[in-house]
Design a protein around this nucleic acid. Structure first.
Lengths: 209, 209
DNA sequence: GTCTATAAGGGGATAGAC
DNA sequence: GTCTATCCCCTTATAGAC
């Protein structure tokens, strides 16, 4: 049943986030989902299938949202488009913090199981931001700079705090899942982009080749 | 024997980095170290003891280096002290990239084994950077800002690329272990700090409360 | 300090009944 | 689609010989 698959995915997302992928057994997932163990293999061909399904659905959702936005903003001024893309990235990561954490963590394991699947997703993931930056540089509205490095800077800013929610709670006294946190992150990243991309900025070699 | 302990620690650091802590078995560590399995329990009271020893030695080394630097630079101008502290952090993280990756990854697991041990280390870890910033703000040489947020920004910048060495290789065409990468990271972080801390910067709300 | 042998348990996956 | 029972492998840790 479709409901069973959803229960398994929810339970797995929760436990993978708390204990890590390797630290979670299919038995624990079944228990948390209140579902028989064998159903995990039946519906997802095993534990790795659950992970891959989670990742796929995460990225497909992000790409769908990016596509929808692209359609409505295609002719808007480039800075406004950048603002909207950044807002989408920040909100998406915050809303799906647990899976973001899971993906980023597993991605840092060199012998990751689903590495081939991931490289494809990551390339489209980067392109969502990079394409707007490249367009702005092309029209001369943005300073010439290394797009790759700016994208890495933005990603670091957004993702790193999500990787350590307990630190964010202590240091920021902000709930990582809250709207305040999301808003603050959005403002920070835009400031960073302003400094990196807009001319009339004071002399800085930041992210410029 | 002391050599045996070192062989185990080296092997464990390598395998934990490649496969993750949970993904590495004591048998594989023993094999990689060319040492009998039982010696891991004998010398480190089990697998977790190896992890804790690695983490402890990592932080003790960093804190010792910070202390030595503090002693020689105590009376230097604050911006120069900041430069030296940042250089130390960047170089240290790059030189010990594998253990940095391991620690940051395991730290993002909510049910991490050695969490109590870690919180103590992390507080001193942050203080190394924060103390210089606070001093500079106190003398009025740095703009008033949220020290915690600047420290998080710096940490994100340094650590995130190290978490994804394969991405760095593709995107930057730089070897994450190389001196060029370390130098670039140093320059980037200093630029970031200049924008965040020094007055006469163009209007930016970045990291200011 | 080092080794062998073994204990005691948990892991993922599946065959076959319903 | 769901469940039970089971297989087989690998895990960590340790007792006891050397």
């Amino acid at each position: 049943m479709e409901q069973t698959k959803m229960r398994i995915l929810s339970a797995a997302a929760k436990l993978f986030d708390i204990h890590g992928y390797q630290g979670t057994s299919v038995r624990k997932i079944a228990e948390e989902a209140d579902v028989n163990v064998a159903l995990i293999s039946y519906h997802f061909q095993g534990k790795q299938g659950v992970l891959e399904t989670l990742m796929a659905s995460y990225f497909e959702t992000l790409f769908r949202l990016l596509g929808e936005q692209e359609a409505t903003l295609a002719s808007a001024p480039v800075w406004q488009r950048l603002e909207q893309v950044v807002r989408l990235y920040v909100q998406f990561h915050c809303e799906h913090a647990a899976i973001t954490r899971l993906i980023q963590r597993e991605l840092s394991v060199e012998s990751m199981l689903a590495r081939e699947v991931m490289t494809l997703y990551m390339s489209r993931y980067k392109h969502g931001l990079a394409s707007v930056l490249e367009y702005g540089i092309g029209t001369g509205e943005f300073q010439t700079c290394s797009v790759d490095r700016v994208v890495l800077g933005v990603t670091s800013h957004i993702v790193y705090p999500l990787l350590h929610p307990q630190m964010v709670r202590q240091v920021y006294e902000l709930e990582p899942a809250s709207e305040e946190f999301s808003d603050w992150l959005y403002t920070s990243v835009l400031d960073f982009l302003r400094v990196s991309l807009l001319p009339d900025s004071r002399s800085s070699t930041l992210f410029h080749e």
